[in-house]
Design a protein around this nucleic acid. Sequence first.
DNA 1: TCTGGGGTCCTGCCACGT
DNA 2: TCTGACGTGGCAGGACCC
Length: 492
Amino acid sequence: MRAAPTILHLDMDAFFAAAEQASKPSLRGKPVIVGGLGPRGVVATASYEARRFGVHSAMPTAQARRLCPNGAYLYPRFHLYRSVSDQVMELLRGLSPLVEPLSLDEAFVDLEAGGVAFDEAGARAAGERLRADIRAVTGLSGSVGLAGSKMLAKIASEEAKPDGLVLIPPGTERELLAPMPVRTLPGVGPATGEHLRRAGMTTVGELAEAGEDELVRLLGRAHGVALYRMALGRDDRAVVAERDAKSVSVEDTFDVDLHDRVRIRYEVQRLADRCVQRLRGSGHSGRTIVLKVRRFDFSTLTRSETLRGPTDDPAVVREAAGRLLDAVDTTGGVRLLGVGVSGLADYTQEDLFAQFAEASAEGAAGEPGAPPEGLAPGPGGAEGPVAAAEEEPAPERRWPAGSDVRHSEYGAGWVQGSGVGRVTVRFEEPGSAQPGRVRTFKVDDPELVPSDPLPLVDPGRPAQAPSSPASRPKSRSGAAAETSPGSETSSP
DNA sequence: TCTGGGGTCCTGCCACGT
DNA sequence: TCTGACGTGGCAGGACCC
């Protein structure tokens, strides 16, 4: 591990919910919950206002509604989050070529590799500058952790939340970690945490005292060794800018368990097609086809089959998935189906031939066939906007809560709710000073159309000018404007 | 009062070839 | 010809992460 705290971890605060609040002025300061809104949905992100009611990520949405009945419940708008994320990642790449994105809202940066910081003061200045730039460009806040390793930088950013910066000075790691719960360490989830608790270990200090041999005995070689090192504050994993994908998969949970074998087979074929679409989109082919089935009792099983060579042919993947399904007992019902491809390869000559052959067949074998009679395609018919966008034209227009719309007379707005043939829209834009007016229309009103999300910060009028590119000289040391946590967003 | 979606990594078991 | 050791690959499940 390096001596200077020049690994930076950025974590955007309640990212999806914050983006929704920035985009919809009427939701600012209110509890906002983003996630699946169907009967089996779960919370992806809750705003800090919603967290005060006990709502948190991964909680069933139905439970969240009981805890926070007056919150705004919205479907995720990944297009918006991805565009904001791109802006943030661009700022990070201004700091260093070594940027490792972990998700849309998180990344590691090696400041030393970028030449922007070599010591504590430099790292702190770069972190503060970054936070100010993110706010200027996106209107959102992010928390920054700085330390000499990835693990500690991540722990630091967690401590910094919301809207803060924490630096772990070199030499203080063990002392700092010792009283923390074992769950603080990456790789310790509910199962390992419980395992360790039964063995009498609840803090990181107790793991360090137990010794490597004991942890290996309890958790196995790889996990035990890694955990012992982490407990000592040792982590020499490098920031890796590019990672190759290892697998591609798609899955759907159905609002109601499926029992009909014909319907199940049809859904597997649709998933296989979607999976191949994604596979091709990523420029890959793959050798191992995986079928995932979650049964009525939540037990999950996977079946896989490895082909002779990689493929990106939908017919081949459909067939393999179908064969795997034949070996699965689905009596009792299934709540989730998934199809994945692993053992990824770049395109091969063989794949090109396969594609060519398929193209000449004019897609005759490229369709999964019509849905079983009387059954609409899709998971229970209540899928979110992302899934809906991939469907065939629906007989009735859908207006998912939170989605962007435009009305020929009233302009840009978003869907507050819909039902019984009506859709309620609030007309406001990210820059609106006041909450917008609400109007209700018929769902098939021709004046109302879905639209793309508007940028959170008008590019012509940034909230505040971002500082010059991060590759600039390091002499600038101010940038203290955004250090204080927002008073209204303190965690419960 | 029920538990999403898209991933990664590890472990144990088994079959197979040498 | 039989047997055991060993390495490897495939498969299934579990844990974890965001």
